[in-house]
Design a protein around this nucleic acid. Structure first.
Lengths: 210, 210
DNA sequence: GCGGTAATTATACACTTGAATAATTAATAC
DNA sequence: GTATTAATTATTCAAGTGTATAATTACCGC
Protein backbone atom coordinates (compact mmCIF):
# COMPACT_ATOMS: atom_id res chain seq x y z
CA UNK A 1 0.00 0.00 0.00
CA UNK A 2 2.56 2.59 -1.07
CA UNK A 3 1.32 6.14 -0.58
CA UNK A 4 1.54 7.54 -4.04
CA UNK A 5 2.54 11.10 -4.66
CA UNK A 6 -0.21 13.44 -5.65
CA UNK A 7 -0.67 14.00 -9.39
CA UNK A 8 -0.76 17.54 -10.69
CA UNK A 9 -0.77 19.62 -13.84
CA UNK A 10 1.15 22.81 -14.43
CA UNK A 11 -0.84 25.92 -15.06
CA UNK A 12 -0.04 29.45 -16.06
CA UNK A 13 1.13 31.73 -13.31
CA UNK A 14 -1.77 34.17 -13.67
CA UNK A 15 -4.34 31.43 -13.66
CA UNK A 16 -2.92 29.82 -10.53
CA UNK A 17 -2.64 33.16 -8.77
CA UNK A 18 -6.24 33.89 -9.62
CA UNK A 19 -7.37 30.52 -8.31
CA UNK A 20 -5.49 31.17 -5.08
CA UNK A 21 -6.99 34.63 -4.79
CA UNK A 22 -10.49 33.34 -5.34
CA UNK A 23 -10.01 30.61 -2.78
CA UNK A 24 -8.70 33.25 -0.39
CA UNK A 25 -11.74 35.47 -0.90
CA UNK A 26 -14.07 32.56 -0.28
CA UNK A 27 -12.37 31.73 2.98
CA UNK A 28 -12.05 35.32 4.16
CA UNK A 29 -15.78 35.73 3.57
CA UNK A 30 -16.49 32.57 5.53
CA UNK A 31 -14.07 32.88 8.41
CA UNK A 32 -12.20 36.17 8.27
CA UNK A 33 -8.56 36.75 7.50
CA UNK A 34 -7.26 34.75 10.44
CA UNK A 35 -9.61 31.90 9.65
CA UNK A 36 -8.36 31.79 6.08
CA UNK A 37 -5.34 29.60 6.73
CA UNK A 38 -2.79 28.79 4.07
CA UNK A 39 -3.74 25.15 4.33
CA UNK A 40 -7.41 25.93 3.92
CA UNK A 41 -6.74 28.19 0.96
CA UNK A 42 -4.53 25.59 -0.71
CA UNK A 43 -7.17 22.94 -0.26
CA UNK A 44 -9.85 25.23 -1.70
CA UNK A 45 -7.68 25.94 -4.73
CA UNK A 46 -6.88 22.24 -5.01
CA UNK A 47 -3.14 22.56 -4.57
CA UNK A 48 -0.79 21.89 -1.67
CA UNK A 49 0.18 24.63 0.72
CA UNK A 50 3.76 24.94 -0.43
CA UNK A 51 2.59 26.33 -3.75
CA UNK A 52 1.26 29.44 -2.08
CA UNK A 53 4.75 30.45 -1.09
CA UNK A 54 5.83 29.89 -4.67
CA UNK A 55 3.48 32.60 -5.90
CA UNK A 56 3.20 34.86 -2.88
CA UNK A 57 6.10 35.58 -0.58
CA UNK A 58 3.85 35.45 2.47
CA UNK A 59 0.26 35.05 3.53
CA UNK A 60 0.18 38.79 4.08
CA UNK A 61 0.93 39.37 0.42
CA UNK A 62 -1.75 36.94 -0.71
CA UNK A 63 -4.30 38.65 1.49
CA UNK A 64 -3.38 42.04 0.07
CA UNK A 65 -3.59 40.75 -3.48
CA UNK A 66 -6.99 39.25 -2.77
CA UNK A 67 -8.22 42.52 -1.28
CA UNK A 68 -7.02 44.51 -4.28
CA UNK A 69 -8.70 42.07 -6.61
CA UNK A 70 -11.97 42.24 -4.73
CA UNK A 71 -12.05 46.02 -4.50
CA UNK A 72 -11.25 46.43 -8.17
CA UNK A 73 -13.97 44.01 -9.10
CA UNK A 74 -16.55 45.71 -6.89
CA UNK A 75 -15.61 49.07 -8.32
CA UNK A 76 -15.93 47.77 -11.83
CA UNK A 77 -19.29 46.18 -11.14
CA UNK A 78 -20.57 49.38 -9.61
CA UNK A 79 -19.37 51.80 -12.24
CA UNK A 80 -19.57 49.84 -15.46
CA UNK A 81 -23.31 50.43 -15.96
CA UNK A 82 -23.08 54.16 -15.28
CA UNK A 83 -20.20 54.52 -17.70
CA UNK A 84 -22.06 52.85 -20.53
CA UNK A 85 -25.02 55.15 -20.26
CA UNK A 86 -24.69 58.23 -22.48
CA UNK A 87 -27.88 59.88 -21.23
CA UNK A 88 -28.53 62.83 -18.97
CA UNK A 89 -26.73 63.28 -15.66
CA UNK A 90 -29.99 62.46 -13.95
CA UNK A 91 -30.11 59.16 -15.83
CA UNK A 92 -26.53 58.40 -14.97
CA UNK A 93 -27.20 59.11 -11.32
CA UNK A 94 -30.19 56.79 -11.50
CA UNK A 95 -28.07 54.06 -13.01
CA UNK A 96 -25.32 54.44 -10.42
CA UNK A 97 -27.75 54.22 -7.51
CA UNK A 98 -29.46 51.25 -9.11
CA UNK A 99 -26.32 49.26 -9.81
CA UNK A 100 -25.03 49.96 -6.31
CA UNK A 101 -28.18 48.45 -4.86
CA UNK A 102 -28.73 45.34 -6.96
CA UNK A 103 -26.82 42.09 -7.30
CA UNK A 104 -24.04 41.33 -7.81
CA UNK A 105 -22.92 44.37 -5.84
CA UNK A 106 -25.49 43.67 -3.16
CA UNK A 107 -24.53 40.25 -1.91
CA UNK A 108 -24.11 38.64 1.52
CA UNK A 109 -20.60 37.65 0.55
CA UNK A 110 -19.59 41.27 0.02
CA UNK A 111 -20.64 42.18 3.52
CA UNK A 112 -18.74 39.26 4.95
CA UNK A 113 -15.68 40.28 2.97
CA UNK A 114 -15.99 43.87 4.06
CA UNK A 115 -16.12 42.79 7.69
CA UNK A 116 -13.43 40.17 7.28
CA UNK A 117 -10.97 42.62 5.77
CA UNK A 118 -11.75 45.60 7.98
CA UNK A 119 -9.17 44.81 10.63
CA UNK A 120 -6.39 44.34 8.13
CA UNK A 121 -7.46 47.46 6.29
CA UNK A 122 -7.17 49.50 9.46
CA UNK A 123 -3.73 48.15 10.36
CA UNK A 124 -2.02 47.66 7.00
CA UNK A 125 -0.96 50.87 5.30
CA UNK A 126 -1.16 49.49 1.77
CA UNK A 127 -4.62 48.07 2.23
CA UNK A 128 -5.74 51.27 3.91
CA UNK A 129 -4.64 53.22 0.86
CA UNK A 130 -6.54 50.89 -1.46
CA UNK A 131 -9.62 51.28 0.67
CA UNK A 132 -9.58 55.06 0.86
CA UNK A 133 -8.97 55.38 -2.83
CA UNK A 134 -11.97 53.21 -3.63
CA UNK A 135 -14.14 54.98 -1.10
CA UNK A 136 -13.24 58.50 -2.23
CA UNK A 137 -13.63 57.47 -5.85
CA UNK A 138 -17.19 56.47 -5.28
CA UNK A 139 -17.99 59.50 -3.22
CA UNK A 140 -16.49 61.95 -5.71
CA UNK A 141 -18.27 60.30 -8.56
CA UNK A 142 -21.52 60.49 -6.67
CA UNK A 143 -21.02 64.15 -5.83
CA UNK A 144 -20.20 65.01 -9.44
CA UNK A 145 -23.31 63.27 -10.70
CA UNK A 146 -25.46 65.02 -8.12
CA UNK A 147 -24.00 68.37 -9.10
CA UNK A 148 -24.52 67.76 -12.79
CA UNK A 149 -28.05 66.48 -12.28
CA UNK A 150 -28.99 69.52 -10.22
CA UNK A 151 -27.43 71.92 -12.72
CA UNK A 152 -29.29 70.17 -15.48
CA UNK A 153 -32.53 70.74 -13.60
CA UNK A 154 -31.67 74.36 -12.91
CA UNK A 155 -31.38 73.84 -9.17
CA UNK A 156 -28.67 75.83 -7.44
CA UNK A 157 -26.63 74.28 -4.63
CA UNK A 158 -23.56 75.58 -2.84
CA UNK A 159 -20.41 73.44 -2.71
CA UNK A 160 -20.98 72.86 0.99
CA UNK A 161 -24.49 71.70 0.29
CA UNK A 162 -23.34 69.43 -2.52
CA UNK A 163 -20.78 67.95 -0.20
CA UNK A 164 -23.47 67.30 2.36
CA UNK A 165 -25.73 65.70 -0.24
CA UNK A 166 -22.94 63.40 -1.33
CA UNK A 167 -22.19 62.39 2.24
CA UNK A 168 -25.84 61.67 2.96
CA UNK A 169 -26.46 59.77 -0.28
CA UNK A 170 -23.29 57.81 0.13
CA UNK A 171 -24.31 56.84 3.65
CA UNK A 172 -27.79 55.92 2.48
CA UNK A 173 -26.45 53.68 -0.27
CA UNK A 174 -23.93 52.06 2.08
CA UNK A 175 -26.63 51.44 4.65
CA UNK A 176 -29.05 49.93 2.14
CA UNK A 177 -26.23 47.86 0.68
CA UNK A 178 -25.54 46.53 4.15
CA UNK A 179 -29.16 45.80 4.95
CA UNK A 180 -29.62 44.06 1.64
CA UNK A 181 -26.55 41.95 2.13
CA UNK A 182 -27.25 41.16 5.75
CA UNK A 183 -30.93 40.28 5.31
CA UNK A 184 -31.26 39.19 1.67
CA UNK A 185 -34.70 37.67 2.16
CA UNK A 186 -36.10 40.84 3.68
CA UNK A 187 -36.28 42.66 0.36
CA UNK A 188 -38.04 41.86 -2.89
CA UNK A 189 -35.95 42.14 -6.06
CA UNK A 190 -35.69 45.78 -7.02
CA UNK A 191 -37.12 47.01 -3.72
CA UNK A 192 -33.77 48.15 -2.37
CA UNK A 193 -33.06 50.05 -5.55
CA UNK A 194 -36.48 51.66 -5.53
CA UNK A 195 -36.07 52.82 -1.94
CA UNK A 196 -32.61 54.10 -2.77
CA UNK A 197 -33.78 56.08 -5.78
CA UNK A 198 -36.70 57.61 -3.99
CA UNK A 199 -34.65 58.54 -0.92
CA UNK A 200 -31.72 59.98 -2.86
CA UNK A 201 -34.27 62.00 -4.82
CA UNK A 202 -35.80 63.29 -1.60
CA UNK A 203 -32.42 64.17 -0.12
CA UNK A 204 -31.18 66.17 -3.08
CA UNK A 205 -34.60 67.57 -3.95
CA UNK A 206 -34.78 66.07 -7.42
CA UNK A 207 -37.07 63.07 -7.96
CA UNK A 208 -35.28 60.19 -9.66
CA UNK A 209 -38.04 57.67 -10.08
CA UNK A 210 -39.52 57.06 -13.52
CA UNK B 1 16.49 32.79 42.22
CA UNK B 2 13.34 30.82 42.86
CA UNK B 3 10.52 31.72 40.49
CA UNK B 4 7.85 32.81 42.85
CA UNK B 5 4.24 32.11 42.25
CA UNK B 6 2.14 35.00 41.12
CA UNK B 7 0.24 36.86 43.82
CA UNK B 8 -3.45 37.41 43.38
CA UNK B 9 -6.54 38.63 45.17
CA UNK B 10 -9.97 37.07 44.96
CA UNK B 11 -12.71 39.15 43.50
CA UNK B 12 -16.44 38.83 43.14
CA UNK B 13 -17.65 36.65 40.33
CA UNK B 14 -19.54 39.42 38.56
CA UNK B 15 -16.62 41.80 38.74
CA UNK B 16 -14.20 39.24 37.32
CA UNK B 17 -16.61 38.28 34.59
CA UNK B 18 -17.03 41.90 33.65
CA UNK B 19 -13.27 42.44 33.54
CA UNK B 20 -12.92 39.42 31.27
CA UNK B 21 -15.72 40.64 29.05
CA UNK B 22 -14.21 44.09 28.73
CA UNK B 23 -10.82 42.64 27.90
CA UNK B 24 -12.52 40.45 25.31
CA UNK B 25 -14.25 43.41 23.70
CA UNK B 26 -11.00 45.32 23.51
CA UNK B 27 -9.26 42.47 21.78
CA UNK B 28 -12.13 41.65 19.43
CA UNK B 29 -12.15 45.27 18.35
CA UNK B 30 -8.41 45.18 17.75
CA UNK B 31 -7.97 41.78 16.15
CA UNK B 32 -11.30 40.11 15.61
CA UNK B 33 -12.70 37.08 17.38
CA UNK B 34 -9.95 34.73 16.28
CA UNK B 35 -7.30 37.25 17.21
CA UNK B 36 -8.77 37.55 20.69
CA UNK B 37 -7.00 34.54 22.19
CA UNK B 38 -7.68 33.29 25.68
CA UNK B 39 -4.11 34.10 26.62
CA UNK B 40 -4.41 37.63 25.27
CA UNK B 41 -7.71 38.17 27.05
CA UNK B 42 -6.34 36.85 30.32
CA UNK B 43 -3.34 39.13 30.08
CA UNK B 44 -5.53 42.14 29.34
CA UNK B 45 -7.68 41.34 32.36
CA UNK B 46 -4.54 40.73 34.43
CA UNK B 47 -5.26 37.13 35.29
CA UNK B 48 -3.90 33.84 34.01
CA UNK B 49 -5.61 31.98 31.25
CA UNK B 50 -6.90 29.14 33.38
CA UNK B 51 -9.26 31.51 35.15
CA UNK B 52 -11.26 32.03 31.99
CA UNK B 53 -12.35 28.43 32.05
CA UNK B 54 -13.39 28.87 35.64
CA UNK B 55 -15.95 31.51 34.69
CA UNK B 56 -16.81 30.53 31.13
CA UNK B 57 -17.02 26.95 29.99
CA UNK B 58 -15.38 27.79 26.67
CA UNK B 59 -14.04 30.66 24.65
CA UNK B 60 -17.24 30.48 22.63
CA UNK B 61 -19.29 31.24 25.72
CA UNK B 62 -17.09 34.18 26.67
CA UNK B 63 -17.42 35.62 23.17
CA UNK B 64 -21.19 35.31 23.30
CA UNK B 65 -21.34 36.94 26.70
CA UNK B 66 -19.17 39.79 25.46
CA UNK B 67 -21.39 40.27 22.42
CA UNK B 68 -24.52 40.37 24.53
CA UNK B 69 -22.93 42.87 26.85
CA UNK B 70 -21.86 45.09 23.99
CA UNK B 71 -25.20 45.04 22.20
CA UNK B 72 -27.10 45.80 25.37
CA UNK B 73 -24.82 48.70 26.11
CA UNK B 74 -25.11 50.12 22.59
CA UNK B 75 -28.86 49.81 22.74
CA UNK B 76 -28.98 51.57 26.08
CA UNK B 77 -26.72 54.37 24.90
CA UNK B 78 -28.86 54.87 21.81
CA UNK B 79 -32.26 54.84 23.44
CA UNK B 80 -31.66 56.38 26.84
CA UNK B 81 -31.81 59.99 25.60
CA UNK B 82 -34.97 59.45 23.54
CA UNK B 83 -36.68 57.81 26.51
CA UNK B 84 -35.97 60.71 28.84
CA UNK B 85 -37.45 63.29 26.54
CA UNK B 86 -41.17 63.88 27.22
CA UNK B 87 -41.69 66.24 24.29
CA UNK B 88 -43.42 65.86 20.95
CA UNK B 89 -42.86 62.86 18.69
CA UNK B 90 -40.91 65.12 16.39
CA UNK B 91 -38.62 66.05 19.25
CA UNK B 92 -38.18 62.44 20.24
CA UNK B 93 -37.32 61.53 16.66
CA UNK B 94 -34.79 64.34 16.64
CA UNK B 95 -33.23 63.06 19.82
CA UNK B 96 -33.03 59.49 18.56
CA UNK B 97 -31.32 60.51 15.33
CA UNK B 98 -28.97 62.77 17.22
CA UNK B 99 -27.94 60.22 19.83
CA UNK B 100 -27.43 57.58 17.14
CA UNK B 101 -25.00 59.88 15.37
CA UNK B 102 -22.89 61.27 18.18
CA UNK B 103 -20.36 59.72 20.53
CA UNK B 104 -20.30 57.41 22.34
CA UNK B 105 -22.51 55.53 19.86
CA UNK B 106 -20.43 56.77 16.95
CA UNK B 107 -16.99 55.45 17.70
CA UNK B 108 -14.27 53.66 15.70
CA UNK B 109 -14.29 50.88 18.24
CA UNK B 110 -17.96 50.13 17.56
CA UNK B 111 -17.28 49.64 13.88
CA UNK B 112 -14.38 47.35 14.62
CA UNK B 113 -16.54 45.36 16.99
CA UNK B 114 -19.34 45.16 14.49
CA UNK B 115 -16.96 43.80 11.87
CA UNK B 116 -15.16 41.56 14.32
CA UNK B 117 -18.34 39.89 15.49
CA UNK B 118 -20.10 39.64 12.13
CA UNK B 119 -18.77 36.23 11.24
CA UNK B 120 -19.72 34.73 14.56
CA UNK B 121 -23.11 36.40 14.39
CA UNK B 122 -23.81 34.81 11.04
CA UNK B 123 -22.79 31.33 12.15
CA UNK B 124 -23.90 31.16 15.78
CA UNK B 125 -27.64 30.86 16.27
CA UNK B 126 -27.69 32.50 19.69
CA UNK B 127 -25.69 35.50 18.58
CA UNK B 128 -27.78 35.79 15.45
CA UNK B 129 -30.89 36.00 17.58
CA UNK B 130 -29.36 38.73 19.74
CA UNK B 131 -28.40 40.65 16.65
CA UNK B 132 -31.78 40.48 14.94
CA UNK B 133 -33.58 41.44 18.10
CA UNK B 134 -31.43 44.54 18.51
CA UNK B 135 -31.74 45.44 14.87
CA UNK B 136 -35.51 45.05 14.70
CA UNK B 137 -35.91 46.90 17.98
CA UNK B 138 -34.19 49.94 16.56
CA UNK B 139 -36.04 49.78 13.28
CA UNK B 140 -39.46 49.42 14.92
CA UNK B 141 -38.75 52.22 17.29
CA UNK B 142 -37.70 54.40 14.41
CA UNK B 143 -40.81 53.57 12.40
CA UNK B 144 -43.09 54.29 15.32
CA UNK B 145 -41.48 57.67 15.91
CA UNK B 146 -41.76 58.54 12.24
CA UNK B 147 -45.43 57.57 12.20
CA UNK B 148 -46.19 59.60 15.31
CA UNK B 149 -44.25 62.62 14.09
CA UNK B 150 -46.10 62.58 10.77
CA UNK B 151 -49.49 62.15 12.43
CA UNK B 152 -48.64 65.02 14.73
CA UNK B 153 -47.92 67.18 11.70
CA UNK B 154 -51.09 66.07 9.96
CA UNK B 155 -49.23 64.26 7.19
CA UNK B 156 -50.81 61.04 5.97
CA UNK B 157 -48.66 58.05 5.07
CA UNK B 158 -49.68 54.49 4.21
CA UNK B 159 -48.18 51.61 6.20
CA UNK B 160 -46.14 50.60 3.15
CA UNK B 161 -44.78 54.09 2.88
CA UNK B 162 -43.97 54.24 6.58
CA UNK B 163 -42.15 50.97 6.25
CA UNK B 164 -40.14 52.36 3.37
CA UNK B 165 -39.32 55.53 5.32
CA UNK B 166 -38.10 53.46 8.25
CA UNK B 167 -35.93 51.31 6.00
CA UNK B 168 -34.40 54.33 4.32
CA UNK B 169 -33.82 56.27 7.52
CA UNK B 170 -32.39 53.23 9.23
CA UNK B 171 -29.99 52.73 6.33
CA UNK B 172 -29.04 56.39 6.34
CA UNK B 173 -28.28 56.33 10.05
CA UNK B 174 -26.31 53.10 9.75
CA UNK B 175 -24.32 54.49 6.85
CA UNK B 176 -23.53 57.75 8.62
CA UNK B 177 -22.66 55.83 11.76
CA UNK B 178 -20.23 53.78 9.71
CA UNK B 179 -18.67 56.76 7.97
CA UNK B 180 -18.30 58.58 11.25
CA UNK B 181 -16.67 55.61 12.89
CA UNK B 182 -14.45 54.77 9.94
CA UNK B 183 -13.23 58.32 9.30
CA UNK B 184 -13.59 60.12 12.61
CA UNK B 185 -11.46 63.07 11.56
CA UNK B 186 -13.54 63.67 8.43
CA UNK B 187 -16.44 65.18 10.36
CA UNK B 188 -16.67 68.13 12.70
CA UNK B 189 -18.48 67.53 16.01
CA UNK B 190 -22.20 67.66 15.38
CA UNK B 191 -21.81 67.57 11.62
CA UNK B 192 -22.87 63.97 11.31
CA UNK B 193 -25.93 64.59 13.40
CA UNK B 194 -26.83 67.68 11.40
CA UNK B 195 -26.60 65.80 8.12
CA UNK B 196 -28.62 62.97 9.60
CA UNK B 197 -31.38 65.26 10.83
CA UNK B 198 -31.62 67.16 7.58
CA UNK B 199 -31.64 64.00 5.45
CA UNK B 200 -34.16 62.13 7.58
CA UNK B 201 -36.32 65.23 7.39
CA UNK B 202 -36.03 65.26 3.61
CA UNK B 203 -36.81 61.57 3.31
CA UNK B 204 -39.97 61.64 5.41
CA UNK B 205 -41.01 65.09 4.23
CA UNK B 206 -40.95 66.72 7.64
CA UNK B 207 -38.07 69.06 8.48
CA UNK B 208 -36.38 68.17 11.74
CA UNK B 209 -33.82 70.91 12.09
CA UNK B 210 -34.35 73.69 14.59
C1' DG C 1 13.05 10.22 -26.85
C1' DC C 2 15.64 13.34 -23.67
C1' DG C 3 17.48 16.74 -20.54
C1' DG C 4 16.57 20.84 -18.06
C1' DT C 5 13.98 23.55 -15.22
C1' DA C 6 10.51 25.60 -12.99
C1' DA C 7 6.04 24.25 -11.04
C1' DT C 8 4.44 21.41 -7.63
C1' DT C 9 4.41 18.27 -3.75
C1' DA C 10 6.24 16.61 0.62
C1' DT C 11 8.32 17.12 4.93
C1' DA C 12 10.10 19.53 8.87
C1' DC C 13 10.15 23.20 12.38
C1' DA C 14 9.18 26.42 15.85
C1' DC C 15 5.42 28.58 17.76
C1' DT C 16 0.50 29.49 19.03
C1' DT C 17 -4.00 27.92 20.17
C1' DG C 18 -8.05 26.17 23.19
C1' DA C 19 -8.76 22.97 26.47
C1' DA C 20 -7.90 19.92 30.39
C1' DT C 21 -6.02 18.92 34.78
C1' DA C 22 -3.10 19.43 38.81
C1' DA C 23 -1.18 22.37 42.35
C1' DT C 24 -1.56 26.34 45.32
C1' DT C 25 -3.45 29.95 48.20
C1' DA C 26 -6.55 33.76 49.74
C1' DA C 27 -10.53 34.51 52.14
C1' DT C 28 -14.17 32.90 55.25
C1' DA C 29 -16.30 30.56 59.25
C1' DC C 30 -15.62 28.75 63.51
C1' DG D 1 -5.25 29.87 64.98
C1' DT D 2 -7.10 26.19 61.98
C1' DA D 3 -9.81 23.80 58.73
C1' DT D 4 -12.36 24.43 54.57
C1' DT D 5 -13.17 25.55 50.07
C1' DA D 6 -13.43 27.78 46.06
C1' DA D 7 -10.76 31.18 43.34
C1' DT D 8 -6.60 31.39 41.09
C1' DT D 9 -2.24 29.95 39.14
C1' DA D 10 0.74 26.54 36.87
C1' DT D 11 1.49 22.87 33.79
C1' DT D 12 0.46 19.78 30.18
C1' DC D 13 -1.43 18.25 25.69
C1' DA D 14 -2.89 17.58 21.08
C1' DA D 15 -4.03 20.09 17.16
C1' DG D 16 -3.26 23.89 14.10
C1' DT D 17 -0.37 27.90 12.38
C1' DG D 18 2.96 30.29 8.94
C1' DT D 19 7.30 29.61 7.08
C1' DA D 20 11.30 27.26 5.31
C1' DT D 21 13.54 23.74 2.67
C1' DA D 22 14.12 19.41 0.32
C1' DA D 23 12.32 16.09 -3.00
C1' DT D 24 9.80 15.15 -7.20
C1' DT D 25 7.80 15.59 -11.76
C1' DA D 26 5.22 17.65 -15.64
C1' DC D 27 6.07 20.17 -19.48
C1' DC D 28 9.01 22.59 -23.23
C1' DG D 29 12.62 22.86 -26.70
C1' DC D 30 15.49 20.13 -29.09
Amino acid sequence: MSEERRKFTREGAEQRKLALIQATLELVAEKGVRGATVRGIAERADVTQGLIRHYFSSKEELISAAYDHHMTQMSDLTFAPATMDPGSARDRLRVLVHSSLTPPVVDPRSIALWAGFLNKVQHDAGMKATHEKTYLDFRDRLERLIREALEEAGIAASPARLNQFATACNALIDGLWMEGGALPEAFAPGELSRIGLESVGAIIGLPLEP
